[in-house]
Each structure stands twice: as structure tokens, then as C-alpha cells.
């Protein structure tokens, strides 16, 4: 199985390590040609405004949007969740997202770095809590009717899916626990 990791900016190398630990082959994705032959794609955390800009300048936005429409399995964490969301609040006016999952997210909704935190979250499909790290995290403010919420923290969804699109407002790549990457790869 070949999993692409969007490598325009952000924590892509940590995702590659986590995916490799699950037995997947990975490829860094920076230009349209890198999409060929991918079975799935991970969009990492990082700065969503930077990634949005680089998606346009690299010519990657439209071909990637088409692959996502064609049912490519995608997992977006933090900034990656912002890129996949239908609606983005507190973004830049020129910021683009793929409208791949029917949620509204607020950039830096949990605050600045001083408010970044770690906490155990209950993921019902796993048999014990998952330790989650939230960094200047986006906050989900609305979910559409077709969304399956996989985990909440303090009553707010932090892990969700719609079909083959998965999103997390935290960073499963920053902890040595591979269960969420495995969960995603099982769906692929």
C-alpha cells in the first residue's frame, strides 16, 4: 500500500514514521505528479495558510481536489483538517479548502500556543483512551448530518469521518501510539 503525505510544509516526516510503523510505504507529495498511484493521502499539521498558498503555486490544488472527489482516502490532522473542511472560520480571505467533509472549523479555535494542551480522549472504536496532543488546534463548530463523530474532547468533536475522509483536530503523529493511523489504513 502506498500512502502519500502532503509535504508542502508541516509535520509530514512524523506522519511518514507513524505510517511506516504500520507497515505502509509512503511518498512525499509536493507536485501533481506525486499523486500518481497513491492509495491514500495524509495531510499533516502545520500552518494551513502556508499550505493553502503552496497548494496553489505548486499547481497541486486542482488535481488533488479531483482525486479526493474520486474517493481517495484522506486523513487530515490539525491544519490538514482545516484544508479538508467545508467552512473555515478565522482563516485568511484567500485561504482555500477542499470541501471534502461537511464540517465548520475555526482556525486556532483552542487559542494560541499558551493554550496548546495534551489530554486523554475516549475513542469508542479503540479499547483504551488515546493520548492526544493539541497544538494551536482548530475547533469544530458545526458538523453536517453525514458526519460520524469518532471522538470528542469536552463535548466537542475532535476525530470524525465522512466516508473515506478522516479528520482530527489533534496530532496522532506526535505520540508513539499507531492506533489511529492503523484505523485509517484499515479503511483504505
Amino acid at each position: 500500500m502506498l500512502v502519500g503525505v502532503l509535504a508542502l510544509q508541516g509535520a509530514f516526516s512524523a506522519h511518514q514514521s507513524a505510517l511506516a510503523d504500520c507497515g505502509a510505504s509512503t511518498r512525499q507529495v509536493r507536485v501533481a505528479g506525486d499523486l500518481d498511484g497513491l492509495d491514500a493521502l495524509v495531510m499533516p499539521g502545520g500552518e494551513s495558510t502556508t499550505m493553502s498558498r503552496l497548494l496553489s503555486t505548486s499547481g497541486l490544488f486542482d488535481p488533488l481536489a479531483e482525486r479526493i472527489r474520486d474517493d481517495l482516502a484522506v486523513f487530515g490532522t490539525c491544519a490538514g483538517m482545516i484544508l479538508l473542511a467545508r467552512d473555515v472560520l478565522d482563516g485568511r480571505p484567500d485561504q482555500r479548502s477542499f470541501d471534502a467533509i461537511d464540517i465548520t472549523v475555526r482556525r486556532n479555535g483552542y487559542g494560541r500556543q499558551v493554550d496548546s494542551f495534551e489530554a486523554d480522549i475516549d475513542v469508542p472504536s479503540l479499547n483504551s483512551p488515546f493520548h492526544a496532543v493539541f497544538i494551536r488546534a482548530p475547533k469544530v463548530e458545526r458538523i453536517g448530518p453525514d458526519i460520524t463523530v469518532l471522538a470528542c474532547h469536552d463535548g466537542v468533536p475532535v476525530l470524525a469521518r465522512q466516508g473515506r475522509v478522516f479528520v482530527a483536530s489533534f496530532h496522532p503523529e506526535l505520540t508513539p501510539d499507531p492506533r489511529l493511523h492503523s484505523l485509517f489504513l484499515q479503511e483504505v
Partner: peptide, 27 residues
Amino acid sequence: SFDESSTTRATGTYPVKRGLAEMLKGG
């Protein structure tokens, strides 16, 4: 809107601090 409760969360820990450094990579 979601009915928010408040549970334990740890701020300013080493993983949280190092995490932001990780997010700035490639930039």
C-alpha cells in the same frame, strides 16, 4: 453549538512545546 464540558488538560508540557516546533518544519 456543542455542549462543552471541561476535563483535565495539561498545558505547557514538553510534548506540547516540542509539538509546535514540529509544525513549523518545511517552512
